[in-house]
Computed example of a mutant assay.
Amino acid sequence: MTKNQRTGTRVGLCGLGQMGLPVAARLATAHDVLGYDITADRRTMAHQIERVTTTDRLADLAGCDTIVLSLPNPAISRTVLADLAPQLNTGTLVVETSTVLPSDVREWAQLLAPTGARVIDAAILSGVAQMSGGTATLLVGGDRADIEAAGPVLDALGGAGWSRFGDLGAGMAAKVVNNGVAHAVMVVLTEAFAMSRAEGLDLADIAAMLERPDGGLIRPLTHRVMERMAAADYDGGMPLEAARKDSTLALAMAQRSGTPLFAMQAAQSVYDLAMAAGFGRDDYAAVARLWEDWGGASLGFRPQTADDGADS
Rank of each mutant, 00 (worst) to 15 (best):
A208C: 03
A231S: 10
A46H: 06
A25S: 14
M253H: 13
L34H: 00
D32V: 08
A306T: 11
T2Q: 14
V140N: 00
G237H: 02
L154I: 00
G133Y: 06
V287D: 00
I218C: 07
A250F: 09
G91I: 10
S103L: 07
M131V: 14
G12L: 07
A30S: 14
L88Q: 03
D65N: 13
L189W: 10
A285I: 01
M275L: 14
G17N: 07
T79R: 12
R78N: 11
P239N: 01
A160P: 04
G161D: 01
A150R: 02
H47M: 13
V176T: 11
L217A: 12
A252R: 09
A310S: 12
M209G: 11
T39G: 13
S70E: 06
L290T: 00
K175R: 11
L273F: 06
T137M: 08
G15S: 02
G158T: 03
D293A: 15
D65L: 08
L81S: 07
V94S: 06
T66Y: 00
T259A: 05
A285P: 00
V52R: 04
Q87H: 12
D202W: 03
A160R: 07
Q18N: 15
M264A: 12
A297N: 09
L249R: 08
N73E: 14
A310G: 06
K3I: 13
M229I: 14
M1I: 07
L58P: 01
G180W: 09
M172E: 10
D205Y: 05
L71E: 01
L189S: 08
M186H: 14
A85E: 08
Q5W: 09
R78I: 12
T92M: 01
N73L: 12
S163F: 08
D293S: 13
K245P: 05
L88D: 02
M45N: 15
A149C: 08
H183Q: 14
V105D: 02
L61T: 01
E148R: 06
I124F: 07
V68K: 02
G169Q: 01
Q268F: 09
T92F: 05
D272W: 05
L261S: 01
K175W: 04
A267T: 07
S103N: 09
P152L: 06
E227S: 10
E50K: 13
G159T: 01
D205C: 02
Y234Q: 00
A267F: 08
